[in-house]
């Protein structure tokens, strides 16, 4: 396929993915908006006013970047894992497999589709946060770059999960038992400076900590970790998971008999 045909195929997959999550917006876009509004009210306004400052900022200001990032992570992951598993389950993956679309285009299409939902929800949550606090973006490039790369990374994670999943339970296990705990412990609600030294060290093994803190740095200008290292790590994980996801597609794992 030449470049024009590849582009058409890529756009087709992305549009199909965007059409899917916007068609079921009550399931995909509304719940995170409600959940995050509740976080803003309860943790930001009600409890946050008693906590005082965190990292030199109002508690509400401090948690907003983390909550935006949490939405991006869970929605990017959730979009691809449910969409690609659904495609496998309903067997309409065969529509793609019989066509000449190369595997890297299939992967890119799903990942950008997932990132689109993650970023879309992130945008909605950002707009909602403006009802509760003023957002002054400290470093626009870092803010945009880190949120985009994180959405891509977790879309890739969702894709790999979907390839391995055989039942609907399998697509819920990773988000529930791995992703949510890592996100909650990834510095969304607190600075790791508050933790004892040992737990600070343990926290630094959590990759989500680096994404949340990089994003917070982009918005507030404060971070618990080194931004350069965080970027290197995110890009490294993208290359690793991207390569692995492509390998799975090339070998037909979970999709070809």
């Amino acid at each position: 396929m030449n470049t024009r045909l590849l582009w058409t195929a890529f756009v087709t997959i992305v549009v199909k993915e965007i059409r899917r999550f916007t068609r079921i917006w009550v399931q995909t876009l509304l719940p995170p908006a409600i959940t995050m509004t509740l976080y803003f009210i309860i943790f930001g306004n009600l409890i946050g006013s008693r906590i005082g400052e965190m990292g030199g900022f109002d508690y509400m200001e401090y948690i907003v970047p983390g909550l935006i990032m949490m939405s991006v992570i869970t929605n990017s992951y959730g979009n691809v894992v449910s969409s690609f598993f659904g495609t496998k389950f309903q067997r309409n993956i065969e529509e793609l497999l019989v066509s000449p679309v190369p595997n890297w285009i299939i992967l890119s299409g799903y990942v950008i589709g997932g990132a689109a939902r993650g970023l879309g929800v992130g945008f909605i949550v950002t707009l909602l946060s403006l009802f509760f606090t003023d957002l002054q973006i400290h470093h626009l490039f870092i803010t945009i770059a880190v949120v985009l790369l994180t959405a891509i990374l977790f879309s890739l994670g969702g894709f790999i999960n979907a390839v391995y999943a055989k039942t609907f339970d399998d697509i819920a296990i990773v988000p529930t038992f791995i992703l949510t705990p890592l996100t909650y412990l990834g510095g969304v609600f607190y600075s790791i400076q508050l933790l004892p030294e040992f737990w600070q060290g343990v926290s630094q093994l959590n990759p989500i900590l680096y994404m949340v803190n990089s994003f917070r740095y982009g918005i507030l200008g404060v971070s618990d970790i080194d931004i350069g290292f965080a970027f290197a790590m995110i890009i490294g994980f993208i290359l690793l998971l991207g390569g692995y996801a492509l390998h799975l597609l090339n070998t037909g794992k979970g999709i070809r008999e």
Binding site: N2, R4, L5, A9, I13, R23, N92, E95, P100
Partner: peptide, 19 residues
């Protein structure tokens, strides 16, 4: 096919996979 998609979308999307 995806049973939740419209008939026309299913056919047009398939065409897109062929560029």
């Amino acid at each position: 096919f995806n049973p939740f998609e419209k008939v026309l979308d299913i056919v047009v999307t398939q065409a897109g996979y062929y560029g």
